[in-house]
């Protein structure tokens, strides 16, 4: 079964980049432009992995994470991709942190590694 990656970022060009990259490498994707929309998308699409930006309009990444992680049985891995400094402390449970600009191959390698666990 194809695995699904949810991309949460307010910059449409970044989401497009990640979207094409993941799909080109055989994953399904779904996209949310901010933390608020991300909750709905998350519940509807049930992704296997989330890439999450921190600073977004409406709702910030950490808040979105707190919301969805409260649900029973939540164990979806999260990769933080953000330009905010101090990102390591924002979501302690995240599997990986990438700074913007990020190395596409590194992100892909990490996603593959997490999804094959």
């Amino acid at each position: 079964m194809t695995q699904k990656i949810m991309i949460v970022d307010d910059d449409p060009d970044v989401t497009k980049f990640l979207d094409i990259m993941f799909r080109h490498n055989g994953y399904e994707t779904c996209i949310a432009p901010d933390g608020k929309a991300a909750v709905e998308v998350f519940l509807k699409e049930k992704p296997d992995l989330i890439t999450l930006d921190l600073e977004m309009p409406e709702e910030w990444g950490p808040r979105f994470f707190r919301k969805i992680s409260k649900a029973k049985g939540f164990n979806t891995p999260v990769i933080v991709i953000s330009g905010v400094s101090g990102r390591e402390f924002s979501i302690p449970k995240a599997k990986a942190f990438f700074a913007k600009p990020f190395d596409a191959d590194e992100v892909l390698r990490k996603a593959r590694e997490i999804l094959s666990e």
């Binding site: 910059d11 060009d13 970044v14 497009k16 980049f17 990640l18 094409i20 990259m21 330009g83 700074a99 913007k100 600009p101 990020f102 596409a104």
Partner: peptide, 14 residues
């Protein structure tokens, strides 16, 4: 700038 560079990388990748 960080956001812009990510976008630029995206263009490059595509």
């Amino acid at each position: 700038i960080k956001g812009l560079l990510s976008g630029l990388d995206g263009g490059d990748y595509m």
